[in-house]
Design a protein around this nucleic acid. Sequence first.
DNA 1: AAGTCTTCGTA
DNA 2: GTACGAAGACTTC
Length: 975
Amino acid sequence: MSQHRPLKSGDHVYLIDGSGYIFRAYHALPPLTRKSDGLPVGAVQGFCNMLWKLLKDMKAGEKPTHLAVVFDKSEQTFRKRIYPDYKAHRPDPPADLIPQFGLIRQATRAFNVACVEQSDFEADDLIATYAREAAAVGATVRIVSSDKDLMQLVRKGIALYDTMKDKEIGEPEVLEKFGVAPDKVVDVQALAGDSVDNVPGVPGIGVKTGAQLITEYGSLEELLARAAEIKQPKRRESLIQFAEQARISKLLVTLDQNVPVDHKLDTFLVDEPRASDLIGFCKTMEFSSLMRRVAADLSADAAAIDPIPVEVKGWPPEGGVATPAPAPAAAPKAEKAKPAAAQPEVRPQASASSERLRAIAVKYDDYETVTTKDALERWVERIRQQGFVALDSETTSLDPMQANVAGISLATDPGQACYIPVGHRAGDGLDFSGAEIKQLPVADVISLLKPVLEDPSILKIGQNLKYDLLIFRRLGIEVAPIEDTMLMSYALESGLNGHGMDELSEKHLGHKPIAYKEVAGSGKSAITFDKVPLDRATHYAAEDADITLRLWMLFKERLAREHKTTVYQTLERPLVPVLANMECEGILVDRAVLARLSGEFAASGAEIEKQTYELAGERFNIGSPKQLGDILFGRMGLPGGRKTATGAWSTDSDVLEDLANQGIEFARKVLDWRQLSKLRSTYTDALPTFINPETGRVHTSYSMASTSTGRLASTDPNLQNIPVRTEEGRRIRTAFIAPKGSKLISADYSQIELRVLAHVADIPQLRKAFADGLDIHAMTASEMFGVPVKGMDPLIRRQAKAINFGIIYGISAFGLANQLSISREEAGSYIKTYFQRFPGIRDYMEATKKTARETGYVETIFGRRCHFPRITSPNASERAFMERASINAPIQGAAADIIRRAMTRMPAALAKAGLGARMLLQVHDELIFEAVDAEIEAVKELVKNVMEKAPEPVIKLAVPLQVDARAADNWEAAH
DNA sequence: AAGTCTTCGTA
DNA sequence: GTACGAAGACTTC
């Protein structure tokens, strides 16, 4: 860059965020390898095309007069010195990206464009400095990047420019993203933090709340200074406690606009590339179409120019190019291997990159409302051509067992989707137009769609398809085969985010879909979807199918690339129809039993309530923890008060139990009242409202992607927390019954998590104890305290049992002390003894924590991945919490995997044995069946067998699994 | 009306 | 000490 010319007003300065561009192009553009030697060059090519476009295709008034590509030089920057954890958790770049870093610098030089980097500063700081200088003399600055960290620089004369979307990011866009003007962006970032760069921020405050606070107080300093004024207690305490962390965060996110730069801005003057350099480079890289364009533009003869030598570093990667997918069994030993991101991998020649899917706009006007048979037939034909279709159903209720269909949406290509209304009705009373809603009869739609929806050669893609499966089943359609984007996301990034469609769309497609409440309203004024006008319904519904299709294209490729296809195909997808069946079956609940119990609980509750008022000497709301706390620790002045997180008196059962044990009658009464109140409100009164009027049974809903470990969750109602521990509570279980002539069978795994632990941590004593069928807690006590199992003090055994559970939960002395009501020192010494006797467990726990810290995730023996992005949190107690969770996840998760495998196989196994029994419920380590009296023994045996062999053939556990099965008229007796 | 806190039911 | 969901009280809009 020999040319100099002082910058002047009206110049156009382009500053390209080179490092940002590389990563974005790598993920955005189709994978591309150089023909001759397999060198990956996709990002380099995207970069070259972008540069050429900037230099040649910009509109006259926007052409750069000055241009530089700015790179990050070293890992070590001033930010790391302020805060060592900054960007601590960055995975290594993918292996096929590494050689491209050097190539992109060489490409920059071939373009005769300035290439800038400087030690101790990030590219963003250099960009900030140059942008400030340029804007000061009146030049226009465009920063080629869409990185949010650069948005703080936006002001008059400085904008960001996203070349891939061809979109400028100015003040309005920043305002939309951060909720504040660009000059306040760093204040919001300081509060919200950034998990990717490991900027801590203030817990509990995200961009939304941050923006609101900054808007109200004007600045971060003002906010921190006046934090005490904040009304919301939690927010106030958090801001006071983490004020310093917020200040550090602000330092980390604030770009340095005064870097003593090595290269002066005026040396970035744009100059024509030299034909020999640029064409030579294109030739070497085999960028033929770019080469033709360059040759034409520069009037050069490409044939006469020789390829120029390029230097390639980091290719091929050590250990070869392709790595076969590791076996799904990733025992702790495998977990000690390097993070997957650092392993050499080749991206398959595959379809849709995130950026390409983002680039296809969501155009609501392109969506079609299908109201004729002809139109529907055209869609069916299109589906047959494609071999797949994304679909979604719109209904009148969240409960698939009660919902009526309003319409069905389909998508066959990104951007191409339709909505088929079938059950829309006029809004009540307000619509005087008298116009009939134009829609096809349901029967016609069913007869046209049924053949494709049931065609085994056509994939049906959905988001949470279990719901739609039930809807279609009630229309007489058995949808298969299926793909589910929610579950794909769950297999890929459990623990990183939720898996709802709106969230996935925003994260992966950068597009915020129409919110349901925008079309249907919310609260009292909400309408059911069948009342939504067709145009709006089409926009909303077709978009859902469109988005689902795009997500599927993305996830399909990622599952393969990240070796999670097996997890998805064995633990997730096949469970969908199985759970749909279970939900459809439902369980019989005896309304009369619940009504009687409710009456009894109400009566004794009222009596106890009266007694508490007498003991307290006044009437108050016994259900209010606040009033209760005031009475106990204020008016009565009792000792032993503990405060909750928000500073209120705690009145939980531990506190009340303590008081009761000191002879405080009042506390005992409150405890008794609480139990009865809980049983009544949550169970005896709530359950009957869930009895489906058509089937007479209760149909829970299982969510497959809401836990971080692979467990299911049950909602509406939750049938996984029906009481069992107390005598009174257990009576509720007697209301869960089988019809006359049938019985309920309960089959549960015995100690499955400890068995999994014995296997993964490979503990000889545990393995032997399980192999010999011993009492595992007694064995533990015997090992620890050196007492014989025979005639053991039950108290000793109880302590050992608590320790065993503690181990599974990622034990801490604090927790164990609480559990056993002993001192922390005593608990600590128990743990020490335990680890001395079982050193393998300590090794396992340390290894798991290490993996979690280094990779951000842990895996079960079946390959299910659980992410813990916050495990590098600067907050010690949060970090310790994540460590415990990461110890627990492979154990709880493997147990969840095992029962999922059993459930997946169960229907076919029952059918093959000619048994009509039906699986009704799952409660983490227990399955509930309903079977006619005649086949009970056979079902028990078969179920036990399937459950005990569930890990095979993938894993042969080093310990046997044991399943106990019992049959009875009701759940209480069967359990 | 919607969101948060506290408590408590399960594995 | 892990993982959940639901209800009622209370807070905020």
